[in-house]
Design a protein around this nucleic acid. Structure first.
Lengths: 107, 107
DNA sequence: TCTCCAATATCGTATTTACGATAACAGTTT
DNA sequence: AAACTGTTATCGTAAATACGATATTGGAGA
């Protein structure tokens, strides 16, 4: 997939994890699977779990006996802030989408 | 602006610069100004100019006598790839926007 | 020409993000 | 209990991204 390009756009993994957990409790491996669908490439465990640990230590997510993670109240607040920022930065997303005629992925 | 949060979401600066240049020739300082509007915070010159240099060295952008940068053909191609990837990763943006009732920033 | 000023550029470093390898752990099956 | 398997977790390191300070450049005006 995605050929060799120059800007790698690192840096929205924890944001996406928060977003995914907003909709559904998930385990680490479920998160890994879902991320793969989005990115096209599989993140290594050495990427996912440290992020989960960081988010947990920061009090943004918690896990239950089954290792299913979900958002805390703070996590929810922080997610909202991030979404706000995100749409301020990318305020012209619609134009961008039109530009490349991006056919809805995954509908 | 944006209070202290945990995930910093670095990593879309060169992407955004390519996108901005798609629409309009710009100088370094114009790019800095525009980025400030998006991010809410001013990037330091030590951030902007190295990125411009990298993009130029990679043949994605060129500058004219007036130091106005614009996309090359390769730059255009690469931008399109990035946009494709972007919308695959964030395929559920609409849901996200609805979720936070993000009032359109900036018209 | 000389001075001033903003824009541009570079340097060294800090921080963040991600990787690969490997280890610990839990549940199943034999 | 022992071996197997997939998930979870940690460690050290590499790469990407951004910062702050500083240097350089190129006019505009005195």
């Amino acid at each position: 997939m995605c050929g060799h390009t120059h800007c790698k756009m690192k840096g929205f993994l924890s944001f996406l994890i928060l977003w995914m957990l907003k909709n559904k409790k998930m385990t680490g491996s479920e998160i890994t699977d879902e991320m793969e669908k989005r990115k096209g490439r599989r993140f290594s465990p050495g990427t996912i779990y440290p992020v989960l640990k960081k988010l947990k230590d920061s009090g943004l997510i918690i896990d239950d006996e089954e290792k299913k993670y979900s958002l805390t109240e703070n996590g929810e607040k922080e997610l909202n802030i991030h979404i706000e920022n995100f749409f301020r930065i990318f305020w012209d997303l619609e134009e961008m989408r039109k530009h490349c005629k991006c056919h809805e992925h995954r509908k």
